[in-house]
Amino acid sequence: MLPRFWRKIKYRYDLVGSYCENCQSFFYPPRNLCPHCRRRSKIKEIPFDGKGRVLSYTVVHDAPEEYKEEKPYVVALIELENGVRVISQLVCDPEEVEIGMEVKKAFRKYGEDGNSGIIYYGTKFVPDN
């Protein structure tokens, strides 16, 4: 799993996605091929602004083993200002989250491969007050 994580570090540490110059569409996670243009795709890497709003969310109570420390935690479907949608953890009081809430990106730990393994960092979101 180490190379698999490392390979996408750039896109996890920040919201770096794809842009198709042929149809002006944005994608996250990044794609090598535009699903609208396929062979005519002109994909370019592009950093996205880190602001968005909550389209929908859940509060996870039954968490996978590696996320037990953080439960209950919020996983949200977030729409960025350019229309791209991102699934991410939203760091806030579960009582506070609501549809339409404005959020911004934050750099956080997603977990680690045990006490002696590597640490998985990535992008989460926090309320944008």
């Binding site: 996890r12 929908s56 039954d62």
Partner: peptide, 13 residues
């Protein structure tokens, strides 16, 4: 990776 489980995604829906 972000802690989304199968129930979590259906819950969002």
């Amino acid at each position: 990776f972000v802690g989304a489980t199968l129930p979590a995604l259906y819950a969002i829906i």
